[in-house]
Amino acid sequence: MTAPAEFTTLIGGVFAILVVATVIGQVLKSRMGPDNEVVENLVARINAWWGMVVLLALAMLGGQAGVVILFALLSFAGLREFLTLTAKRRADHWALAVSFFIILPVQYALIWADWYGMFSVFIPVYAFLLLPIVVAVQGDTDGYLTRVAETQWGLMICVFAASHVPALLSLNIPGYEGKNVLLVAFLVVVVQLSDVLQYVWGKMIGRHKIAPRLSPSKTWEGFVGGIASASAVGAGLWWMTPFSPLEAAGLALVITLMGFFGGLVMSAIKRDKGVKDWGHLIAGHGGFIDRLDSVVFSAPIFFHLVRYFWSVA
């Protein structure tokens, strides 16, 4: 329980935002009546945010152990949703079991061990080659490539990409020792805030749909407003990072853009598979992937940018 002082400030700020959001939600509810679906969904979302923020804060207070375990569990929940929708036959049973019970835990063990050279190739190289072998020896070739490729996609998105959030703790940045958990906080807060602000801007002034076939709720106004304001907030959070305000703004812009397109890509998969949400476990939001798609897409890019420009071996 040795969180940096900046962490307390940040959490205080996030709680203040949630209190304001909760009050707004209740005011809207009493004005628009309890039957308004948009308001009902908004209130459900805000309530779920309380739970998610508390969980994330507790994990971060637990240091590396807390963050690694939390994201391993999130990967499990995400992979469970993803592989529910992918093509599979009885012959894939072993490949699926190996994905859940070997590949996922090994990836997080490598993250835990700070073994960069291995955790960055384990899934893209070793699991990538192993999986088609495990399926091929079963001898069922109906839709073989589709089945293998969709399983590999699940592992890349839900395990490999997601594991780059706790991987931030392994970076060695001179003058920033013991504070890496703040990089996790910066990434998650900026990207999630960007999602929220895109939603808020979109609901308030959104007119022009950006990708009606993929995601009917995304608008140009929401996109520009959300990305710009979240990047501004990211710049304003420079004091908790090893970056200058300008660098913080640049990185925030990159991760919010990746987050936006991550949401778009995951929506495309949902449309392809004919579902509205990935799951049902987070009230108002849908499934775990619905909430994490933006973080998952931005985490590896953020990790590599920070590693290349700020970290020393």
Partner: peptide, 18 residues
């Protein structure tokens, strides 16, 4: 719905799926 994929006939280890 979907329990067959979780545990197809003759398999012992269940695969986590919704």
């Amino acid at each position: 719905d979907n329990l067959t994929s979780v545990m197809p006939k003759g398999k012992i280890i269940p695969v986590p799926l919704l």
